[in-house]
Design a protein around this nucleic acid. Structure first.
Length: 112
DNA sequence: CGACTGACGGGGT
DNA sequence: GACCCCGCCAGTC
């Protein structure tokens, strides 16, 4: 049952795990990479369940504007920003500074 | 079963 | 550029 969904969730985690230290990506980029471009929301939904998975740096996934939209889903709203800044990613006003420069596109860097 | 809700994004106004 | 609407689809009520 729901094997596709399970695969999708797993694929999302796998991609997120490939995001390099100090870099960030977006929900839409991951969705596009997995071939479900229109379902960026599902990526976020998958992240919501990522608490079960290990080694999934959910804090490196932001929305297309580089905004930390998921920060409220961490134990503390400040956790996401704190984790990012701990790896050199500056956050200003809930947004990744120099987002376009730090953006890591799975389609360009992870061709599997 | 229908309506609502999102860690989203693109397109139109 | 702010704002609104629609598609996406799993989960909840």
């Amino acid at each position: 049952m729901n094997s596709k969904r399970q695969n999708f969730f797993n694929d999302v985690y796998e991609v997120v795990r490939q995001v390099p230290f100090g870099r960030v990506t977006s929900y839409g980029a991951i969705a596009a990479f997995l071939g479900t471009k229109g379902s960026a929301r599902m990526v976020g939904y998958a992240m919501n369940a990522s608490h079960a998975a290990v080694n999934v740096p959910a804090h490196r996934v932001v929305n297309r504007n580089g905004i930390l939209t998921g920060k409220n889903h961490f134990e503390d709203p400040t956790e996401m920003q704190r984790l990012l800044e701990s790896e050199g990613v500056l956050v200003r006003d809930d947004r990744v500074v120099d987002f376009e420069r730090l953006f890591w596109d799975p389609e360009k860097n992870l061709m599997t």
